[in-house]
Every structure is written in structure tokens, then in C-alpha cells.
Deep mutational scan, measured.
Amino acid sequence: EESVKIVRLVKNKEPLGATIRRDEHSGAVVVARIMRGGAADRSGLVHVGDELREVNGIAVLHKRPDEISQILAQSQGSITLKIIPATQE
């Protein structure tokens, strides 16, 4: 059973501070990098390897990473992410 986590981040004009990529094996959209000091890093709630399912209620599974980045870039104020946390080894 996948544990889905709802994360709310507050982002002003600054970038979210995370990059995403598509996992070639599973097809999932995952967090590739977290930039120090960005909104994602400061929240402490988003981690490399987390699978991104939704951004502000928009399912991202069938979107290209550049489309998802665009949605994230255009979002201001509160951003709600639905993520499946990376499995902690």
C-alpha cells in the first residue's frame, strides 16, 4: 500500500527549488534534485526520489516534465503537492 502524502508549500515569486525527472523504469515523475534554500528545501517535506502525483489537484502522470515544471513555475502562494515518499532504505 502506497502512503500518499499531501504537502502544502508556500512559494512567493521564488522558484520551488526542486527539479523533476521521469523514471525510465516505472514512468513515475520523481524529484531529481532539491536546491538548498529553495521553498522545497526550507519546508523539509519534499525529498529526492519522492514520486510526484499531483500539483494543485492536477494529475501529472501523463504530463511531460517540462509541462509539470511550467505548472510549478506559474503557481504562486500555496502549492499543494500529492507525493508518494521515496522508500527509506
Rank of each mutant, 00 (worst) to 15 (best):
Ser3Thr: 09
Val7Ile: 15
Arg8Asn: 09
Leu9Gln: 04
Lys11His: 14
Lys11Gln: 09
Lys11Gly: 13
Asn12Ala: 09
Asn12Cys: 07
Asn12Phe: 13
Lys13Met: 11
Ala18Gln: 00
Arg21Tyr: 08
Arg21Gly: 11
Arg21Pro: 00
Arg22Cys: 14
Arg22Asn: 07
Asp23Phe: 03
Asp23Val: 08
Glu24Phe: 07
Glu24Leu: 10
Glu24Lys: 13
His25Thr: 13
Ser26Gln: 05
Ser26Pro: 01
Gly27Arg: 06
Ala28Cys: 10
Val29Trp: 15
Val30Ile: 12
Val30His: 13
Ala32Leu: 03
Arg33Ile: 01
Arg33Asp: 15
Arg33Gln: 14
Arg33Tyr: 09
Met35Phe: 14
Met35Gly: 06
Met35Gln: 14
Met35Cys: 11
Arg36Thr: 11
Gly37Thr: 01
Gly38Asn: 02
Ala39Arg: 07
Ala39Val: 14
Ala40Cys: 11
Asp41Lys: 04
Ser43Arg: 03
Gly44Glu: 05
Gly44Tyr: 00
Leu45Ile: 08
Leu45Lys: 11
Leu45Trp: 05
Leu45Val: 14
Val46Ile: 15
Val46Cys: 03
Val46Gln: 02
His47Trp: 01
Val48Asp: 05
Gly49Ala: 02
Gly49Trp: 02
Asp50Ala: 00
Leu52Lys: 01
Leu52Asp: 00
Leu52Pro: 00
Leu52Val: 13
Arg53Asp: 03
Val55Ser: 00
Asn56Pro: 00
Gly57Glu: 06
Gly57Asp: 08
Gly57Ile: 00
Ile58Glu: 13
Ala59His: 10
Ala59Cys: 14
Ala59Gly: 13
Val60Gln: 02
Val60Ile: 10
Val60Pro: 02
Val60His: 02
His62Pro: 05
His62Phe: 05
His62Gln: 10
His62Asp: 15
Lys63Ala: 05
Lys63Asn: 05
Lys63Asp: 03
Arg64Tyr: 06
Arg64Gly: 13
Pro65Met: 14
Pro65Tyr: 08
Asp66Asn: 12
Asp66Lys: 10
Ile68Asn: 02
Leu72Val: 13
Ser75His: 12
Ser75Ala: 14
Ser75Tyr: 07
Gln76Phe: 09
Gly77Asn: 10
Ser78Gly: 08
Ile79Ser: 04
Thr80Arg: 07
Leu81Ala: 04
Leu81Asn: 05
Leu81Trp: 02
Lys82Glu: 05
Ile83Thr: 08
Ile83Ser: 04
Ile84Ala: 09
Ile84Phe: 07
Ile84Leu: 11
Pro85Phe: 00
Ala86Lys: 13
Ala86Trp: 07
Thr87Glu: 15
Glu89Val: 11
